[in-house]
Simulated assay, not measured.
Amino acid sequence: MRLAGKTAIVTGAGAGIGRATAELFAREGAEVVIAELDADKGRAVETAIRESGGAALFIQTDVSDEDAMARMTEAAMARFGKIDILYNNAGGSTLNDGKLTDVSNDEFWLKMRVDLFGTWLGCRLVIPHMIEAGGGAIVNATSVNAIVGLNRSAYTAAKGGIISLTRALAVQYAEHRIRVNGIAPGGTLTERVQERLSGAGRVSAPPSDHLLGLSDPDDIAYAVLYLASDEARTTTGHIMVVDSGMTIH
């Protein structure tokens, strides 16, 4: 029960790493706000957590929409009275990304709106409540793509911005006992990745540079749990890489 008595928001919690983290947070004692665009997936996670004895609230949320994010934050406060943890997880890459000269401007702005602006909004709206409560923990989802050079220009640009934003916020809000860290997964066997590996997309084989194999969503969720918990009380501005050794060779 490492999060007992805490309230956590997880964006993009309907599937993949977001769902794994929301369910893990609930098992560890947190009240979980599921901020998810897909209503069916969001309600399914809410139901699963409640049926397992946890506390959960689903709020349909487009993280790139300021009004929607504000409504979600207000609903979380109305139900639970506080926000201790924010995991800005929503985002991801698409098969339309690639070399800069091949990528459309629409693809670039999609990544900026969802990944970077969505993270900006989450922090902007939640931090005042954390200040009022005397502190909190924020974890922002970046990627190994922002650390090494890979062939997804729009996604890399957005995730690189998240790293810089994370470090800036860690400095700006340390005096309020708000810790801001990032999580940088490598290849992870989410539903989307499994579909691509099955041949349904343009990827048909797992990358060989992941020394221990691809991660499961739970592997990333446990790293997020550490950063969100009081065990990491003096960890801030850190980007935790969970990439099966990808970035070391």
Rank of each mutant, 00 (worst) to 15 (best):
T61F: 02
F58V: 03
L116E: 08
R179P: 07
I147A: 10
C123S: 11
R177P: 00
D230I: 11
I239Q: 07
R167V: 05
A137E: 08
T235V: 15
I83H: 08
G182C: 14
A205Y: 06
A55F: 04
G92L: 05
V144I: 15
A44L: 07
A55Y: 06
L125D: 14
L110M: 14
S93K: 06
L197R: 00
A168K: 01
F108H: 12
A154H: 07
Y222C: 06
D97G: 09
N96E: 15
P217F: 02
G14H: 04
V241L: 10
V139T: 10
I9G: 01
S204P: 00
T188H: 13
K159L: 00
V10K: 01
T236M: 10
A137D: 11
S143N: 07
R71F: 08
E175C: 06
G98P: 08
T156A: 14
S164Q: 13
N140M: 14
D40H: 04
K111V: 02
T236L: 09
T7H: 12
A146K: 12
P206R: 01
S153H: 12
T21G: 04
L121R: 02
D106H: 01
A200Q: 09
E66A: 15
L95M: 12
Y226V: 09
A26T: 01
W109E: 14
V148P: 08
G136Q: 01
N145C: 15
F108A: 00
N96F: 09
G201D: 08
A223Q: 13
S52M: 10
M130V: 04
F108M: 14
I49F: 00
T47D: 11
R196M: 13
A170F: 10
D209M: 03
E28S: 07
D243M: 12
S104V: 03
D218T: 11
G182E: 11
G118I: 01
D115P: 03
R202N: 03
S215F: 02
A170E: 09
M1H: 15
G122P: 05
G149H: 08
E66Y: 10
V103S: 14
S244E: 07
R19A: 15
D115V: 11
E74Q: 13
H129Q: 09
E36Y: 07
V63C: 00
A68E: 08
T119C: 02
Q60V: 01
I85T: 07
I17S: 11
D62H: 13
T235H: 05
A56N: 08
I17W: 07
A232R: 06
A228T: 08
S244F: 08
A205T: 13
